[in-house]
Structures are given as structure tokens and as C-alpha cells.
Design a protein around this nucleic acid. Structure first.
Lengths: 356, 356
DNA sequence: CTGAAAGCGCTTACAG
DNA sequence: CTGAAAGCGCTTACAG
């Protein structure tokens, strides 16, 4: 590489422009407070040297890193990705997201919290509210805003933006019960040392509770495999379910991703959805909207969670110690009935195999 | 919050342990070189104060940030997410990914490169090889490893891990031609100031070139809408195509996501896939594998791109100035014929609407 | 095995 | 509008 042996510093710029480093710093931070001529000279020097300010040094000096830490279960779930994008968009270009993922492992979360806190973020956003003792202690002592998202912990460590997964599960069950189903199943993942999707588990528990409230058995509320769930997870779970309970009428999957896999498994077995089995998902992923028939789901606005969190953080950062923003923000959920739980197809099904 | 007014510093720890800050630093960096008794005292103090080292200060001092910058088009595409996870896994816990996303906007990429470089990453990984002049200049002068991924630029700015999108497009076309199709279409996105998926465009160009090589017209190689493509994009593009060219026999979509949307649109219109129209995707997303019929695709190992990039970086970081690692790593592609391009369904289709 | 000094590249606070 | 001094919290390099 023909690059210079060393990155130019602010000192180099100041020398070239014939000013102090202070003035360079000012031009970069707030150009308006410097005379036009000086500003021009400084910017020319910056341009000429290809100077890129060192924010590591700047952060140490100003005690502001403009980092926001974000801990998610996976990087490949588009719903969490939507939350991340929403957060990034609201925070704007002056903040840099420090993203880590846990794969639903609580020990990994602890490691990540420690690693991120050592970067001195201005706030830490974390999916979930079940943490190790050490994690909880670190978060409590961090002296920065902590936002637990995708849940409604009571009380949260500091702040929370999300919704009740338990209530989401209840709503799911009621939707299927109201449709007249009686032999109702649910599929989620195992909660153990390898991985634990506590939010999915809360949905299953809310679901089971609603079944019992309606006088129905909850023996078909199943945990299969480990989080993160996949299309394949749903297919496998549905295959198991069909063997175990041939009389099942409706299935709730803890994710649209699982739901889609379950529907495909039904198709492979020649079982009509919703005619033979109704399927309800969770999350309102794009896949569910575009699938034919479209997947009924419990809608949660993933992007709004990120945006709302961003707004909350900006309020907290800007706060001139007026009234502090609220502790809990519930973005709510709603059940969206679509094709896969229709009592009969909304429109006549296409013939299959269809001909042109 | 009942947290202490100020975060404890290494100085606080050293005082409590009755040693110098140097010794605290040593215990944290390399416990073995400190006597057992001293180590114990230091660790006790660390524990007691809940001390979390300040890596901002540490980075400035040691001139090692252990950051790796990563610039991706979107955070919600699971293939790029897989690359990010692969990279993170190989780099291990001592490196922190600094992720930014461009939404396929070249100006946003420039802003991000500047922002990330100011954090002094040890390396920068960037999807793509089409950059603004200013971006290219910054990358060239950065004096750190730069890895352009998901492409095969010749020459790359520094290093590259990926594959040829042009060749992927050619391979896609040949697959469809070999199957006996003659009226062949392709759908991608527009390349303009709003967004530009240059990799998808390269695939379309390779595809068109292969059609022409076979003496076939390339008038159905279409650009519709803007990247990032979605399930809806594929559905819309297929709807347009069916209106524009009722005689189309096969379609290549620049992404499995688009391909899935296209297949659903066919289903809504009662057109059998592959009986009526063959559909070939790109990327080998899980959705394609689980879909029924499974989506034929051009497979690219997204996670391997991330892992390979991680290994390359570790080699570059560790390098004791021996032989430098290679410039280009091509992970290759392969065409995976599955249900949606089968000349006839691999197994008899289920009756539709199926009955239980 | 342990420590005193210097310094990483900026910004803050204070002057003028 | 501009600058000299001090310092952010660590690690490096040098001693002992």
C-alpha cells in the first residue's frame, strides 16, 4: 500500500493550517464559532492530509463515546434486524451501534454485557429481561440508561420498550378458541442450559393459561428443539405433532418462521391449511404476509420497538433534568387473522396442481 | 438508581489492593506474570468495586481497539446476517464488530466508512466493491486491512472474499437453458441514485450475456423497484412479467426472497411452478430449502464468506511479516436444482386443495 | 515480580 | 475569535 506510514493527527492539521489544535477541534465540532478564513484554512488542511479525527481519543477526552450497545439473540432474525434498523435510524448518524448476539445463551449475554460496558456506551439496549446475577449487577451499576426490549418486565432494571409475551400467547389462544377449535396445540423451543428463548416460553405459557381458562387441555403445548427456531424447526415440530395427535385442529407457533415451516410440512403431507389444520404464527414477518395462503399471526411492530427505544434514549440524553421519560412503554400486539386460520379460505383456493 | 456517582477506575482498584495501576493492568492483561498473592488481592478489589476496565482509554494507550468494522447493505437480510455471525465467531470474543448498514446507498456508505474509520478499527470489511471516489480514497489510505466481500473485484482495494456475481448469473442462465427453456426472464432491481444493488445487477448482466451466447433474446431481463428486494418485490415483478410476456417459461430472480414472492404470485394466479413456469432463485436462503416445492437456487455460502474473512483477518493481525495471505479468496457458487425448476415435480404433487 | 514516568490524541475549562 | 495547560484512564517502555 502506498499509504503514509502514520495517520495524520490533529496536530499535523493544526501545523499545516498554522493554528492551534484547539482551533482545529472547534472547526470540526462547531464550524460556526471560528472565523471564516481560519475555518477555510483548517478544512483545506484536513482535506489535503485526508485527516480522519480519532474518536477513541475524542471519546476519552470528552467522556462521550456516542456508542449505544445493543444485545440481540441473533443477527439473522429479520424482526430483531428491524428493531436494530429502527433504533439506528432514530439515533441518527452521530451514534454508533455496538451490536452483539447471544444465540439465546445467558452466559454469552453476560460476556457480551461486560465486553460492551467496557466500551463505555451511553446506553445499553438488550432484548429480554432474564439475566444472570452478574449481568443484572453490571447493568444496575452501569450508571447509563438500560432498556430491556421485546418484553414487559415488571419492574425493569431501568427502562423497557416492548409488550407482554404472556398476553400475546393468551391472545393467540383466544383467537383459535373463538374460531371454534377445541383440540389446540402450540409449538415452541426448549428452555435449558444450551439456549433459552424466554419470550417464546412466556407466549407458550400465556397460551396454555388461556386454554385452561377455556376449560381446554394444554397437553399439546410442546417444546421441541432449541432456539433460534427456523423454518425447519416448524416443519419438524409439525411432523411430530401430527404423529402424536392426529386429531389436532389448530396450531400456534411461537414464530411466523416456525409457522411457515409447519404449513410446508402440512403441504408435503397433503393436509390443507386452514381446511385441515389452522395455523397461527407470531411476529408478523414479511414471509407471512406474502405466503399464499397468508399466515395469520400475532402482530408486533419490531421496527417500532427500535424507534421507540431510540426516541426514549434521545430524551434521556437530552434531558435537562426535567420530567424523566416513562419507565415502561408497551407497543402492544394485535392478532391478525389471515388465510391460515380462516374457517374456510377467504377466496376459493387455486386448483392444485394448477394448470396454466 | 442507587449506583455510585462515578465508575471506579483502575486507580481505585490499585489503591484498594495496595498496588500500582501497572500491576492491576498486568493482572487483567496477563495474570500469569504477577505473583499469586498480588493477583488475588487485585482480583478481590476488582470484584468488590465491580470494576469494568475502560477500553476507550486502553485502546488509546495501546493503539489497539480490537474493533473490526463491517458495512452491510441491510441488517435484515439473513444471508448478510450469516456472514456477520460467521465473522464474529471466527474473530472470537476479543474483537468487537462495528456494524453499519447502507440500504444500498453509496453516499450512506461513504458516511459510514468515515464514521467507522474514526473509531480506529483494526480492519474494515465491506460488502461490495463499487464505492465513491472519496470512499475509495479513505479505504486506500486507511493503513488497515480492507476486505471487500460478496464480490470478486479485480483488483480489490486490498483483499477480497467472495465470488463472481456475473458468473453466478451465467450459471443461472445455463441451468435454465439446459432444462430446455427458451423464453427466459430475469428480475432484479433498478440501479440508480436511490439505491443500487451492484451485485444483483452483475448477476443480471451475466445472465443476459449467457442468454445471448445461447442465441436467445435478453429482452425479459428486467429491473423493477429498488433494493433491498423483498418477498413483495418478487410478487410484483412476477405480476408485471406475466402481463408483459404471457409466453415466459422460466424466471431467474436475483434473490431467493424475490423468487419466493414470485412463486406465491404464481400460486395466487393458479400457475403451477414448475409445471407452468420454472423459477430459479439466488442465495440458498433457508426459505427456499423449506418451501414446498423447494426453490432451485444458486447457492452461495454466506456464513463461509464471514468465516473466511475472519480467518484472513486473524492471519493478517498475527502476521510476523512472513508470507502475506492471498489477495483474493473465491468461495465459489453452485447451482442447486430443486423443485421449482424440475421438469416435472420430483415427487407427485399433493392434491390441491388437499383433504385430510 | 513490581513501579514511576511518559504519552496515546483528543476536549475541557480557563484566559485573553 | 484563538490558544496554552491540564487531563481523560489506560499501556508502553524502561528500571530495579
Amino acid at each position: 500500500m502506498s499509504s503514509p506510514p502514520k495517520k495524520p493527527t490533529m496536530r499535523d492539521v493544526s501545523r499545516l493550517a498554522g493554528v492551534s489544535t484547539m482551533t482545529v477541534s472547534r472547526v470540526l465540532a462547531d464550524p460556526g464559532i471560528v472565523s471564516q478564513e481560519t475555518r477555510r484554512r483548517v478544512l483545506t488542511a484536513v482535506e489535503q492530509l485526508g485527516y480522519v479525527p480519532d474518536l477513541v481519543a475524542g471519546s476519552l477526552s470528552s467522556r462521550r463515546t456516542n456508542f449505544v450497545g445493543l444485545i440481540l439473540p441473533t443477527l439473522t432474525n429479520s424482526n430483531f434486524g428491524n428493531s436494530a434498523q429502527g433504533l439506528a435510524e432514530v439515533l441518527g448518524p452521530s451514534y454508533q451501534l455496538l451490536i452483539g448476539y447471544t444465540l439465546y445463551r445467558i452466559a454469552e449475554e453476560e460476556r457480551l454485557v461486560r465486553a460492551l460496558l467496557s466500551r463505555r456506551p451511553e446506553a445499553l439496549v438488550i432484548a429480554g429481561s432474564i439475566h444472570t446475577v452478574a449481568t443484572r449487577r453490571m447493568l444496575t451499576n452501569a450508571a447509563i440508561p438500560i432498556v430491556e426490549i421485546w418484553e414487559r418486565p415488571e419492574p425493569p432494571i431501568d427502562r423497557s420498550v416492548g409488550f407482554s409475551n404472556f398476553e400475546a400467547g393468551r391472545a393467540a389462544a383466544r383467537h383459535l378458541i373463538d374460531l371454534g377449535h377445541r383440540r389446540i396445540a402450540a409449538v415452541g423451543s426448549l428452555v435449558d442450559a444450551d439456549a433459552a428463548d424466554h419470550r417464546g416460553e412466556a407466549r407458550l405459557q400465556g397460551f396454555a393459561a388461556a386454554l385452561r381458562d377455556a376449560g381446554l387441555p394444554d397437553d399439546l403445548v410442546l417444546r421441541r428443539g432449541h432456539a433460534p427456531v427456523s423454518y425447519g424447526h416448524g416443519a419438524e415440530a409439525m411432523a411430530f405433532l401430527l404423529e402424536a395427535a392426529g386429531d389436532v385442529e389448530a396450531v400456534f407457533a411461537v414464530s411466523d418462521v416456525s409457522a411457515f415451516g409447519a404449513i410446508m410440512e402440512c403441504r408435503r403431507r397433503g393436509i390443507d391449511v386452514p381446511g385441515g389444520i389452522a395455523v397461527l404464527g407470531f411476529g408478523d414477518f414479511e414471509i407471512g404476509r406474502q405466503c399464499e395462503p397468508a399466515i395469520s399471526t400475532v402482530r408486533v411492530d419490531a421496527k417500532a420497538i427500535g424507534e421507540e427505544t431510540g426516541r426514549l434514549l434521545l430524551e434521556l440524553f437530552d434531558r435537562t433534568d426535567g420530567t424523566p421519560p416513562p419507565i415502561l412503554r408497551d407497543v402492544g400486539i394485535s392478532v391478525v387473522g389471515r388465510g391460515t386460520t380462516a374457517l374456510r379460505p377467504a377466496r376459493p383456493s387455486s386448483p392444485w396442481p394448477p394448470s396454466r
